[in-house]
Each structure stands twice: as C-alpha cells, then as structure tokens.
C-alpha cells in the first residue's frame, strides 16, 4: 500500500495539483477534499500533474472528472500534465481524452494557457 500524496502550489495563472502514488477507491476521496480547498477564479487554469501517478482505478478517474467539474464551475480551465502512457489507454477507453486536454509537462500546459490569451 503506497497511498497517494497530494501537493498544491499556486502558479501565476492558477493552481498546480500534483498527484503522486496510487489514485484509487481509498485515496480518491482525498482528491475531492483537496479540490474543495482550491479556489479558482474565472479564466484561471487548474493543472493536474500526473507525472508521478503509479496507479489509477475507476474511482481515480471519477476524481479527475470531479477536478474538471470543479474548474468548469469556476469558469476556469483544466489541463492534465504528463499523463502516464499506461493511463492514456484507459483515458481513450472511458472517453476522457475528449474532455480533458493533456500536455507533456506542467510548463507546456502553462504555455498553452498563455497562448490562449493572445
């Protein structure tokens, strides 16, 4: 049992939420709790950094959708950074690739957000 570590850090235009470890039935509720504490304003970006994610089950997928809903409810946008290769297949399977934009890194996600402004 490796568990999940959640870290949030503010960036210029929003918040980065990093999920490290196993995102499953046991740990997904913590993502929902953390989301409640992340305040976003219209136009900001929530970047979910998955570079250190080692496992994700259906509850984990649900928590990522909750993150999307949380961002959209504040008129903010959401981007996933460093989606692990093994998760790409699952994303395609559940159709998440169509509703969650992914970038190779958090920097790339930020760059995309800046471009959007121009």
């Amino acid at each position: 049992m490796t568990g999940l570590t959640l870290t949030t850090r503010p960036i210029e235009h929003g918040v980065v939420l990093q999920l490290s470890g196993e995102l499953d039935h046991h740990t997904a509720p913590r993502v929902l709790e953390t989301l409640k504490r992340i305040t976003l304003t219209a136009g900001q970006q929530l970047v979910v950094d998955l570079s250190r994610l080692s496992f994700c089950d259906s509850s984990g997928i649900a928590s990522l959708v909750a993150a999307r809903n949380h961002a959209l409810a504040a008129d903010a946008t959401i981007a996933l950074a460093a989606l692990p290769a093994w998760l790409t297949r699952v994303f395609r399977m559940v159709g998440l690739d169509k509703v969650l934009v992914t970038y190779p890194t958090t920097q790339a996600a930020a760059a995309a957000w800046s471009r959007r402004l121009r």
Binding site: L32, L35, K36, S58, I61, A62, V65, A66, N69, H70, V94
Partner: peptide
C-alpha cells in the same frame, strides 16, 4: 449525480 461527489459507471 452531480456536484462535488459525482458518480459514474462503465
């Protein structure tokens, strides 16, 4: 099922 604790199924 909407709001803070959304539920889905496959």
């Amino acid at each position: 099922y909407r709001g803070d604790n959304p539920r889905y199924c496959t």
